[in-house]
Amino acid sequence: MRVRSTSLVSQVLLVGVLVAALAWVIFPFYWAFLNSIKRPADTFVNSFVPFLQFQPTLEHWLAEIAIPETRQALLNSTLIAVGAATLSILIGTPAAYALARFRFKRPNNRFFTTWFLSQRILPPVLFVIPFFLIMRELKLLDSVFALILLNATFTLPFSVIILSQMFRELPRELEEAAYVDGASAFQAFAQVALPLVLPGLVAAWIISMAFSWNEFLFALSLTTKNGIPMPVIIAGAEHTRGVQFWFVGVRTMLTLLPPTILALLAQRYIVRGLTLGAVKG
């Protein structure tokens, strides 16, 4: 009897914890969504069920999307995310393969891996000055191109480390068979190994896109007008204009929906991605 009663208690506790955790995680998203579809007057009242408690409206979404700066920022963010992630995968994949399959001496594989990993330790703020000065010299301030280069740089270690783990998990026999058939190293890589890691590669690409979309410090430092992406559009706007809950809701949703949807697409690889491959999820 005693066992059953404690298990009932633990069941109730478990459900309680689950519900609390879900509510805690989901509330901010739901709150942003709610405000984005409320009429301004309704945002001052705490009501949580559209149609029953208030009449929803799409007017703020339409108004926000009609703003040229917002459209430009959405386009810029998309270009930066896709461009940086693609570049980082293009450069990172061969390097990842090299670290997984070839044995280097002086400097050895361990050195290279540590070197790529250590890039993660560098504080981004240390790079604000040099990048600002370099981009000013190159006349690349306020350009999407500069932000593509920078985000590719910051996602490159991630691509290299995570993809080299995936290559290492492939059985060598397939490539060895290809070598026996007279394939070059490049053919073994491109025609045998690459197709096999494709799901992981796509996941790494998706996660890199989300990281690049979310990047804020360099976007803020290097853009002034034409190159501004979404995170810069929203930063600090309300401090100067006064808080308009409904536009906060729309802009928040517009900014965080793309990366969160991307994350859901790469679900299987998230834990591995976030730990740079150290823990397999």
Partner: peptide, 18 residues
């Protein structure tokens, strides 16, 4: 649970104002 991790931090802070 993965959603907060990929929510744009600036957007989350901005939403925090409300």
């Amino acid at each position: 649970m993965t959603l907060p991790l990929f929510a744009t931090p600036v957007a989350v802070g901005y939403l925090g104002i409300t």
